[in-house]
Write a protein that binds this DNA or RNA. Sequence first.
DNA 1: AACCAGGAGACAT
DNA 2: ATGTCTCATGGT
Length: 208
Amino acid sequence: MKPKLLDYYKALKKRFGPQKWWPAETSFEMMVGAILTQNVAWANVERAILNLKAMNLLSPEALDGIDAETLAMTIKPAGFFRVKAKRLKNFVAWYVRAGDLTTRDTAALREELLEINGVGPETADSILLYGLGRLSFVVDQYTYRVLTRHHLAPEESTYDEMKELFESQIPKDVPLYNDFHAQIVRVGKEFCRAKPRCETCPLKRYLP
DNA sequence: AACCAGGAGACAT
DNA sequence: ATGTCTCATGGT
């Protein structure tokens, strides 16, 4: 009997408990964090967010008004600060002019987000799921490692294929999408980095 | 002291 | 379409 994806989630939740993502005070802070955390450790993002708060820049209007150079210096700890400053500006330019987001369906919103330079599939899905409470599964490096290492998806799988794998095989439930991805990151950080650690992974019993 | 971290875009092939 | 390079700080 081949294990189902939902079995993985149950095992992870039992082992780690609810992960309570996303760590942000507001929806907008979360969206900013989604861009700042691109390919960077979350601890670095926290410093950048603290800087933004200290400078009173953590609002759509403030970010839309500030110049990219000043913003770059403020978010320096998050790494790639020049490109991320531009990406934040691009995102906020859309956000302050986007109007009522609740009138668009998730697929339409995802298309809009992907049109923004600096917002790729993972950032878009993170914003949709964690920022807007939409049903859109998030795939990342950890997801790729877990799925391929457990032979649940081929090495050459694309982002959208892995996303579809989850969305077609688990219940369409926002809190489930939310915590499942967080659990994958949790187990990925501790156990799925190097192959030797698979021996102690709580998901080892699902390995072929 | 290399290596990596909750990616994405530009660019060459 | 598919690979390679760049962006950059901070922790291990």
